[in-house]
Design a protein around this nucleic acid. Structure first.
Length: 118
RNA sequence: UGAUUUUGUAAGAAUGUGUUCGUUCAUGUGAAAUAUCAUGGAAGGAAAGUCCGGACUCCCCAUGGCAGGAUUCCGCGUGAAAACGCGGGCAUGGAACCCAUAUGUCCCAUGACGGAACAGUGCAACAGAAAGAUACCGCCAUUUGGUAAGGGUGAAAUGGUGAGGUAAGAGCUCACCGGCGAGUUAGUAAUAAUGUCGCGCAGGGCAAACCCAAUUCGGUGCAAGACGAAAUAGGGAGUUGGGUAGCCAGCCCAAUAACUCCGGGUUCGUCGCACCUCGAAAGAGGAAUUUUGCAAAACUUUGCAAAAUUAGAUAAAUGAACACAUCAUCAUUCGAUGACACAGAAUCCGGCUUACUACAAAAUCAUCCC
RNA sequence: GGAGAGAUGACAGAGUGGCCUAUUGUGCAGCACUGGAAAUGCUGUGUGCUAGCAAUGGCACCGAGGGUUCGAAUCCCUCUCUCUCCG
């Protein structure tokens, strides 16, 4: 049960726009911001109830190699620790400037600690 | 021995093996692959910068002129073109040798290296009398003037030395040196040489200033462009021919219309697009790259055969964890950290430029030893 | 992904190859004016190296590095960064 489907990622601009309009619960860490809100469920199947995540890595945090690494590490943390994230919630991960110097384990632990606070 | 620079090489291939969990594409099975299925593929030399050139796309054709852009020593070769390679010439800089104030020989590096009489315009601050044509001091004459030998300025000042000559001077005249043009010689040419002829030599610099000459370029860039679905309002204002490349011609369409702007709706998908062609498909044929073998030529090329390979995402895949081995750093007992530089395909291909690792060679510099 | 524009003092914005570290406005600091402020007027206003006891000077810097030129903020090339546009 560790697969990551396309339905578990935010893939449309409208999904990201909702984070601006709605009231979100936020966690501000040193190297990233994590936002979440409970979305309106359409159905009752697995793909309608699963938590979803979107990752934003702007050009300011580093070059393309750094940005790819951060995306992969955060996605692995989400995939392997799905229990830490609430059902039918959308999550938005925004990477900040200092994240390029952190190791993979540091980023993973920081993401899981933040998810528990939400 | 070290540093720097240049050139070349590396398919610059996760450090290697194994286990577990995943991502994406193709094919198969299947009613359905977003059912937790099977098999196979999946990041570079620069994927980067977007500086050039193409393929391809649409603009009715892409035809002529103007405007505008690009290129620029000569020869040969490769290439579709940009560009690259080899050789030569010229200029600048450096080292060595020779000679002594010059010049020459040879080697290395760099060069956007056409044209400044035979087209024309422009620029040159400050200083200086004067910067393209001049007389401040000085010299001579003394009525008007003549004079660039001496002075000082500047990045740049009318070729240099000597003699004659003169009122004083001056290529004004002569000798030697230098220069320019023609001829001759050598060379395919750029260009070079010159006991030949001519010119006293009134014109130097900047074309990465305008420009001229020769060659060359239509615009547009895959967010090009084609199709489907959904949504919406036959809305409002303006222009009068419109379309087509900045303008003109030419060409095409139209007067029942066309175009521009404002406002409103949508914010999805498929193709283009993954080596090419043919085919409904199975498959067939061909291309490129790599490896291996054989043969020829002669030292890295050609031919033949066999095998393997050919990335295709779209909030954007190519990854993560653990164990063992190896290597590096720290600690020097246990052990800890890491897998190392630059860096991530976005329609495709060929160059250029920039970033950077290892190895090899050459040059220069420094240090040590003999 | 593609196309285009730009970078000058703390900020904004000018600037024919030479007189240009460079003008103007805003801001900031000081002084004058006022009982006190505002407005107004005057003066000053960056960084680095360097000479000098000091006052006061000299040199370099117009995003960075090269080139052309006697001379570059300006012309040319290569990088860095910022911004705009597209279906």
């Amino acid at each position: 049960m560790f697969r990551l489907f396309k339905s578990q990622r935010l893939r449309k601009s409208s999904d990201f726009e909702k984070f601006r309009s709605k009231d979100t619960r936020n966690v501000y860490a040193e190297i990233f911001v994590l936002k979440s809100f409970k979305r309106v469920a359409v159905g009752v199947s697995f793909h309608d109830l699963t938590p979803r995540i979107g990752i934003i890595t702007s050009r300011k945090i580093g070059n393309a190699v750094t940005r790819n690494r951060v995306r992969r590490v955060v996605r692995e943390a989400f995939r392997l620790n799905l229990k830490c994230f609430k059902q039918s919630h959308d999550y938005l991960f925004i990477a900040l400037l200092g994240i390029g110097t952190k190791s993979n384990k540091e980023i993973t632990n920081a993401v899981l600690n933040a998810a528990k606070l939400l």
